[in-house]
Design a protein around this nucleic acid. Structure first.
Lengths: 191, 191
DNA sequence: TTAATTATGTGACATAGATCACGTCGGGAG
DNA sequence: CTCCCGACGTGATCTATGTCACATAATTAA
C-alpha cells in the first residue's frame, strides 16, 4: 500500500474526511526515508515534528546518567512517535528516536498539526482519540510495571506484539521491559 | 471560589469560550458530594462519567489478585479522574475510585462530553490538550519507574506534590510509588 | 575472506526491596 | 473514658534482579 492510502486507512478508523479534506490533510506530510541505525531525534534537539511510521521499526528511548537505555516505545507501521514532551511544551528533546531497521515515515510539523486541528474539526477529533488511546496504553503499562514481575511483563509484551520477538534484538526488549539483558536471557532460557 | 468559577478558570487556561458557551458547557455537569472513604467507581461497574475535582482528594487504584493496591493517580482540586480505559472502550471498570477525604466533584457523562466536543470545536480542543498533558505525565512517571529507585521516586513525588505529605496516609503514598509501606517507612527514616 | 563489532549466554556474587512478625501510638466509636 | 482499629516503626529473613566477568556466536565493515 502506498503512504497516502496507509495514512488514509489509518485515520478512517476514527474519523471520516472528504477526499478533498484528506488531500489537504495529506499535503502537510513530508515523506522521509532512514537507514537502520539512523537517528531521527537526539537529546537536546529542538523538536517540531511528529512521525507516522509507514514501514520499518523505530524506538523512542531515554539514556540516563549511567548511559543505561530505557525504551519508551517501539514504533511500527501506522504508529506515531516523537518526543511529545518536548513537542507540547516547546522544550529541547530529552529522549531520542532512532531506527531499529530501515524505515519510511511521514513527518508532520507540530505547527501544521495545530493548524489542521483548528481548520478541520474532525482532525482535532482524530488527534484527541489518538492521544486517548496512547494515554490508556501508558496507564496499562505503568500498572503492569507495578503489578507484574519481569517474566510476566515479558510474556505480556510477546502476546501483545509477537512480531517484536524476531524483529528487535533481545537487549532492546530488555530495555523496554526495564530489566538487564542478562535477566531477560535467563527468563526465556528458563534459568 | 464556587464550582462554576473553578471550572471556568480551569478551562480558560487552554481555551476561550463565550459566557453563553460556557454556561451551556457547565449545564452538563452535575455536582456531587462524597464523604471520606466513599466509593465513586468500583471494579466491575459500568462507567459512563468522568469527574472534575472541586475539593478534597480522591484516589484511582487497582487491586491485584493478592489484594495489593496500586494507586494510579491521586486527584486533587482541578484534576480530572475516572477509569478512562473503561470509559473509552465501553468495558466494565477494572480500577476503583474513592475518597481519601470528604470531596466535592463535578460529574460529566461521557456521552455529554462527546456531544459537547462535537458541538463546540474549542471544547474538543480542550479535551485534546488535557489528555496530551496526561499522556506526557504518564510517560514521565513510567520513565521514573524504570530509571529511579524507590527513594528517588519518593523525593520526586514530594517535590512535585508537597501537599500530599500531610494529606494522605503513608501507606497510600507507598501504594502510589509501588513499594511496601515498610520500605517507605525505612526510606524517610533514613536507614 | 578476515577482522572487528555487536549480540547473546551463563556463573558468581551483591543488593534493593518484599515479606513476616511484632510493638507502639493516637483518634474515633460506643 | 476506654477500647479498638488503623497507621506507622523496625528487626530478621528471603528473593528477584542487577552487576561483573568471561566465553562464544552472529553480523557488519573493510
Amino acid at each position: 500500500m502506498n503512504s497516502r492510502d496507509l495514512l488514509k486507512q489509518h485515520i478512517s478508523k476514527t474519523i471520516t474526511l472528504t477526499d478533498e479534506q484528506f488531500d489537504y490533510f495529506y499535503s502537510h506530510f513530508t515523506p522521509l526515508s532512514f537507514k537502520k541505525g539512523q537517528t531521527i531525534i537526539s537529546e537536546g534537539d529542538e523538536v517540531d515534528c511528529e512521525y507516522f511510521v509507514l514501514s520499518g521499526c523505530l524506538k523512542a528511548f531515554f539514556i540516563n546518567d549511567d548511559v543505561k537505555m530505557y525504551i519508551l516505545q517501539f514504533a511500527m507501521p501506522t504508529w506515531w512517535t516523537s518526543d511529545y514532551n518536548a513537542l507540547y511544551s516547546h522544550t529541547r528533546a530529552t529522549i531520542n528516536v532512532d531506527c531499529i531497521t530501515d524505515a519510511e515515515v511521514l513527518c508532520l510539523k507540530s505547527a501544521d498539526r495545530e493548524k489542521l486541528c483548528a481548520e478541520i474539526h474532525q482532525v482535532e477529533h482524530f488527534f484527541r482519540w489518538r492521544t486517548n488511546r496512547g494515554y490508556v496504553a501508558s496507564q496499562k503499562r505503568l500498572l503492569s510495571f507495578m503489578n507484574n514481575d519481569a517474566k510476566k511483563r515479558y510474556e505480556e509484551l510477546l502476546t501483545l506484539y509477537p512480531e517484536l520477538y524476531n524483529l528487535v534484538p533481545k537487549h532492546l526488549i530488555a530495555a523496554y521491559l526495564g530489566i538487564s539483558r542478562e535477566t531477560l536471557s535467563r527468563l526465556y532460557n528458563a534459568r
